[in-house]
């Protein structure tokens, strides 16, 4: 059994989530629902829930500001939001879970399944710290990213990633120190996270760190030589974008 609370300023959104939980996740018991961060702060201290469904956009104080009062957290968090691209990006960066409203039951079940260990650990604290940092200073140099590997989570500095290669639903990361990490995210998802951080999709299955390109070798699409000596194909359609990007860099 997981003792949970729902924090959302919109009564029906909160009610819909509770109905879905009853139907699809009988393990989760919603002890109460709060309609503001202020109320939630009190309730969390009083009830000590194991899991908090947290709406991001609320009047007075938003979900992130509420979380700042509970660092390190004594509970797991699943964010809910109707539309906030900026926040969503930050959440994905920290490999935390979020649900888009109206909520999809399949996504809800998947998120709950991940909350198997209801006790928060050191890792969650790190993830939340990373999240807060990303929200506060998204362009900070030396940015780190949390990657869900097969064993657990790995915190990685973005500039140590050389390139990423797609393998169906997984992505293989090749790092500066020649280590490889297999991540349970599609290359598309990774691309969305890293495109603002100097990464470019040069091929259906290659995403590269622009700073790790040694040189471009001409051809139909051509190839790029990476700093670790690997040669990666460039697809014809991406050639022009790549050349433009490289030119600007020079």
């Amino acid at each position: 059994m997981i003792r949970a609370i729902v924090v959302d300023d919109e009564p029906y959104a909160s009610a819909a989530l509770q109905t879905l939980l009853k139907k699809h996740c009988p393990d989760v018991v919603v002890e109460t629902a709060c309609n503001s961060a202020l109320e939630a702060e009190r309730v969390i201290i009083e009830l000590k829930p194991q899991l908090v469904f947290l709406d991001i956009e609320m009047p007075h104080r938003n979900g992130f500001e509420l979380l700042e009062h509970f660092m390190p957290p004594s509970f797991q968090v699943i964010f809910t939001t109707s539309y906030d691209q900026y926040a969503i990006k930050a959440i994905r960066f920290s490999a935390l879970d979020y649900l888009l409203k109206p909520i999809d039951p399949q996504e809800l079940k998947a998120a709950i399944a991940k909350v198997s260990k209801p006790d928060p650990n050191e890792l969650l604290t790190q993830q939340l710290q990373l999240l807060m940092q990303t929200i506060r200073e998204p362009a900070a140099t030396g940015n780190r990213i949390a990657l869900p590997t097969l064993e657990g989570l790995q915190m990685v500095a973005i500039d140590t990633i050389l390139y990423c290669i797609a393998s169906s639903n997984y992505t293989t990361f090749v790092m500066k120190d020649k280590k490889k990490l297999v991540i349970s995210r599609t290359l598309k998802e990774i691309e969305e996270m890293l495109e603002d951080h100097g990464f470019l999709r040069i091929h259906h299955s290659h995403l590269v760190n622009i700073n790790a390109i040694e040189k471009y070798i001409r051809g139909e699409g051509g190839t790029v030589l990476m700093t670790d000596g690997t040669e990666l194909d460039v697809s014809r359609s991406r050639k022009e974008t790549l050349l433009k990007t490289l030119q600007i860099r020079k």
């Binding site: 959104a13 819909a16 539309y83 109206p102 909520i103």
Partner: peptide
């Protein structure tokens, strides 16, 4: 957009 999705959310509740 918040308005749109929150409306949909409320309808989903019903």
């Amino acid at each position: 957009p918040h308005f749109i999705f929150n409306c949909l959310s409320a309808i989903n509740h019903f």
